[in-house]
């Protein structure tokens, strides 16, 4: 079976590389084909990599606190680029200061992220969620196809 491609990277002017290398290792072990664009990556780099590899998900890390500014508009840019249903995940230390995570999560969900992770989340949680979300997306695709046949 073909492995599912996913794009992984650290957004903005952030150069935190350790977690990025661990996520690469963990998601690869988890059965995904990881396209790791590394640190200091612009939104366009994520989108271009996703288009080139026909990726099912974009995983954005941000450790340095500027994540809120760096992630704004990513969903809209994905749609403009034709990546209509791509899954968007974000995780790390997404904002400056110790803020209530629920409010951070809400802000990122409003920006169009499907999953938002608090600092210290194990890669296993992301892997499990990604498998669930992909299975659901597949089911939905089948359903749409069946619906077309019927109508």
């Amino acid at each position: 079976m073909m492995k599912t491609n996913i794009v992984l990277g650290v957004i903005g002017a952030d150069c935190h590389a350790v977690g990025n290398k661990v996520l690469d290792y963990a998601f690869t072990q988890g059965g995904f084909e990881v396209i790791n664009i590394g640190v200091l990556s612009a939104q366009e780099d994520f989108i271009n990599a996703a288009i080139e590899t026909n990726a099912a998900a974009i995983l954005v890390s941000s450790l340095y606190g500027h994540g809120e500014m760096d992630c704004r508009g990513l969903r809209e840019k994905c749609e403009e680029a034709g990546l209509k249903d791509i899954l968007l995940y974000a995780g790390g230390n997404l904002v400056v200061g110790k803020q209530d995570f629920d409010s951070v999560k809400e802000r990122f969900e409003k920006m169009g992220f499907d999953r938002v992770y608090a600092p210290g989340t194990s890669p296993d949680a992301g892997i499990a969620d990604l498998k669930t979300d992909l299975a659901e997306a597949e089911e939905m695709a089948h359903y749409k196809q069946d619906f077309k046949k019927v109508s």
């Binding site: 002017a13 952030d14 340095y64 500027h66 809120e68």
Partner: peptide, 27 residues
């Protein structure tokens, strides 16, 4: 981190937003 990458324009935008929002948007 914007200054570290010599991105002074983005730094300025974040300074302005920090003033408007009354919280530091920069690390």
């Amino acid at each position: 981190s914007y200054t570290r990458q010599n991105r002074y324009q983005e730094g300025q935008a974040a300074i302005d937003e920090s003033m408007r929002e009354n919280r530091s948007m920069l690390n």
